[in-house]
Design a protein around this nucleic acid. Structure first.
Length: 517
RNA sequence: GCCGUGUUGGUCAACCGGUUAAGACGCCUCCCUUUCACGGAGGAAUAACGGGUUCGAUUCCCGUACAUGGUACCA
């Protein structure tokens, strides 16, 4: 595919992420934001967040703030937005209401649009009357517009008086009868439509607010957007936008479009509310619906690292052509290219998502995750006092944690002595000889002034040889004594980490307990 | 129904006319470890179907099927 955007390189790249604040931010939305951001940063351009809140009936309190929280967590920083000042504001469409009307009027003057006075009931009537098995959803298009109540069918005088009386009305685009509308999509290549098959979309609603169609075009123009990336669900309405550009600002000034493939769930499309049923999150962060109070879990709260989250999202539908899978945000900015984005939708695989998180946890230095894990521990009532001890522990158990909450099970024994022991593993191995061994071991360790991994191991094995017991059998028992179960890093490393006194105490307590098994 | 878009293993995917069709996740086997992991070595598993074009198609074109989006005064 031709790199058609290259000729625009002398102009500053400006992209926008234009969400509508109606609820949680799901995977696809974050990825759209991410691709916009990566593209902008790669080309030294600006990343703008514009709030598309033109539907007042769908206003959800808190949704906008939530959106910015998600972007921040992901490390996607807007250059301009309602909360990041810029020269092209306001960045909320509801606050730009008056500007859209001007353009709608201009379209009407040039006969590219018309007023329509049909009431919702009349529209409904038209749809039911024209509905047939072959045409289950009739459109308000060139075939029917001449039978409706609008400025095309009404006399100028009637229109004037309806308008003067304040009759509720909308403005509709007048799609041409027979025109091939095509454009080059950065991902799909040339895409074309027959104008006669596109309906007369509403541009300005009765409440004076623009619809998405008018608003994107006007705002993209006013905000000097050079590249417009959005989900593929918008592809079908692209011809409307193309026509609007042609009528209003000139087709040659239209941004380069890229329609991103959809992210699918296990059984088809990924819908917002199915988070619970899939068994994995669909939102970036926890979202509580203010009306129902229903909480939908997010990736953040599930225990994902933002680095992993954006990594896995970036490569869901894109790759750099190499075999690299782990990318930092910095690398993504460097390597991202919109042409390498897939055309086809991708099914989201939670197993693979977890793998990315696991990789990132392993890769991350303890200091990079300590804050998160500390929070987890404190939530569970375990206070973390010594940061350096904590980091040592994290380094020791990192490899076995896939999600942040895993750290609790994997590291709790470094902070609390075990309360329950793996009885099934101990019972068959425990006898008088072992009891004697561990009693001696506790005594010997108590006399060791140089308590370190090597010495513990040496004393442990020397004593085993003296007592003529295979060290292997003893190691498992020691582990259970220290941990409670058969998990964790090398037993000697655990002993060394928790320290001499604690190690001896745990051996002594366990010896007593094991006697009762 | 109509319109748009898409279709390489179970999933993510490389390839962009000539390959034994990479790699990753997951799964299985083995090694390491008398724990759980990490790690290492193997294995099973793929071009939706039918026509063209071509010396040669997974790659290009056309159908069909399937999937997905749209068909709102929602975005």
């Amino acid at each position: 595919m031709p790199a058609t955007y290259l000729y625009l390189m002398n102009e500053k790249i400006r992209v926008r992420f234009a969400p509508s604040p109606t609820g949680g931010l799901h995977l696809g939305g974050v990825r759209t934001a991410l691709y916009n951001y990566l593209f902008a940063k790669k080309h030294g351009g600006d990343f703008i967040v514009r709030i598309e809140d033109t539907d007042q009936t769908r206003f959800v309190p808190g949704a906008e703030q939530y959106l910015f929280d998600c972007l921040e967590w992901c490390g996607i920083k807007p250059d301009e937005s309602p909360v990041h000042s810029g020269d092209f504001g306001p960045y909320r469409q509801s606050e730009r209401k008056s500007t859209y009307r001007t353009y709608a009027e201009q379209l009407i003057e040039n006969e590219f649009a018309y007023y329509a006075f049909d009431t919702p009931e009349e529209l409904e009537k038209m749809r039911t009357q024209l509905k047939t098995p072959e045409n289950p959803s009739p459109q308000y298009d060139r075939m029917v517009r001449m039978q409706m109540k609008n400025s095309l069918t009404l006399s100028p005088g009637e229109v004037k008086s309806l308008l003067a009386n304040g009759t509720p009305h909308v403005t509709r685009i007048k799609m041409p009868a027979d025109e091939k509308i095509s454009f080059t999509d950065l991902i799909h290549g040339e895409v074309s439509f027959d104008s006669g098959l596109v309906d007369d979309k509403v541009l300005l609603k009765a409440d004076g607010m623009p619809t998405y169609h008018l608003a994107v075009v006007v705002d993209d123009h006013l905000m000097k957007i050079t590249h417009a990336f959005r989900g593929e669900e918008w592809l079908s309405s692209a011809p409307v936008h193309v026509m609007l550009w042609k009528y209003l600002f000139g087709i040659e000034n239209m941004p380069q479009w890229a329609h991103l493939p959809l992210i699918l769930g296990p059984s088809g499309k990924l819908s917002k509310r199915d988070g619970a049923t899939y068994g994995f999150p669909v939102f970036a962060m926890n979202w509580t619906d203010p009306k129902t109070n229903e909480l939908v879990e997010g990736f953040k709260e599930k225990g994902f690292l933002p680095e992993a989250f954006i990594n896995l999202l970036a490569v869901l539908g894109w790759n750099d052509g190499s075999e690299q899978e782990i990318f930092s945000m910095h690398e993504l900015v460097e390597k991202f290219s919109i042409e390498r984005v897939h055309k086809g939708g991708a099914k989201f695989d939670f197993e693979k998502a977890k793998w990315y998180n696991h990789e990132w946890i392993k890769k991350m230095p303890a200091s990079g995750i300590s804050t998160l894990v500390k929070k987890l521990f404190e939530l569970k009532g375990v206070s973390v006092k010594d940061p350096s001890y904590f980091n040592t522990v994290l380094e020791l158990v990192k490899d076995r944690c896939t999600l942040i909450p895993d750290f609790y099970e994997q590291a709790i024994y470094f902070f609390k002595e075990p309360l329950v022991y793996d009885e099934v593993s101990i019972k068959p191995k425990w006898d008088e000889a072992k009891k004697d061994y561990f009693e001696s071991l506790a005594a010997i360790l108590g006399q060791e002034d140089n308590f370190n991994v090597e010495n513990i191991e040496l004393l442990f094995k020397t004593l085993a040889t003296e007592k003529n017991i295979k060290p292997g059998e003893l190691q498992m028992i020691l582990r259970v004594m220290l941990v409670g179960s058969k998990i964790g890093p090398a037993a000697f490393a655990i002993a060394n980490t928790i320290g001499k006194a604690e190690t001896i105490s745990r051996i002594e307590k366990a010896t007593i307990r094991f006697e009762s098994f």
